[in-house]
Amino acid sequence: MLMLVWLIAGVNAASGAGDDCGAQQACQDANDVGTAIGAGLIVFLWAAGAVILGVIWLVTNSRSAAREARRRPPDTW
């Protein structure tokens, strides 16, 4: 949720920054490119964090599942 708020706030803040350019199309285009790069970076960090947390969860969850399997006696003796 925090990443989504960060993305929306960043794009919203950058959308009005091109108003200082006036009629210069190159300046407005540069502002748009910078906004796209910033938004892409936020999405990349979001995805990288999700992958890292997912791997950590898988590693810790598989260990606890293996321990639980060793604690239980077999179904048939």
Rank of each mutant, 00 (worst) to 15 (best):
Gly22Tyr: 03
Gly22Arg: 01
Leu45Gln: 15
Trp46Met: 10
Arg72Met: 08
Ile42Gly: 00
Ser64Gln: 05
Asp32Lys: 15
Cys21Glu: 03
Ser64Pro: 00
Ser62Tyr: 02
Ala48Met: 01
Cys21Val: 04
Leu58Gln: 04
Pro74Leu: 09
Ala23Tyr: 11
Leu53Gln: 01
Gly16Ser: 10
Arg72Ala: 11
Asp19Ala: 14
Arg72Asn: 05
Leu7Asp: 04
Ser15Pro: 07
Gly18Ala: 14
Asp20Gln: 12
Asn61Ile: 03
Asn31Glu: 08
Pro74Trp: 13
Val33Ser: 14
Ile8Leu: 06
Val59Trp: 01
Met1Asn: 08
Cys21His: 04
Asp19Met: 14
Gly18Asn: 10
Ile52Arg: 02
Phe44Asn: 04
Gln28Trp: 03
Val43Gln: 06
Trp6Ala: 11
Pro74Tyr: 15
Gly54Arg: 03
Asn61Met: 00
Ala48Asp: 05
Arg70Pro: 02
Ala50Val: 14
Met1Gly: 14
Ala26Cys: 10
Ala13Leu: 01
Ala17Thr: 11
Val55Arg: 04
Ala39Glu: 08
Ser64Asn: 02
Asp29Ile: 04
Glu68Asp: 13
Asn31Ile: 10
Ser64Glu: 00
Val33Met: 10
Leu45Gly: 02
Cys27Ala: 02
Ala69Arg: 14
Thr35Met: 15
Leu58Ile: 10
Leu7Arg: 03
Leu58Pro: 09
Gly38Phe: 07
Asp19Lys: 11
Val43Thr: 04
Leu58Trp: 07
Ala47Asn: 01
Cys27Lys: 03
Trp77Asp: 14
Cys27Tyr: 04
Gln24Glu: 13
Ala17Asn: 15
Arg72Tyr: 05
Asn61Thr: 06
Gly49Glu: 05
Ile56Met: 01
Gly34Tyr: 14
Ala9Gln: 08
Arg67Ile: 04
Ala23Thr: 12
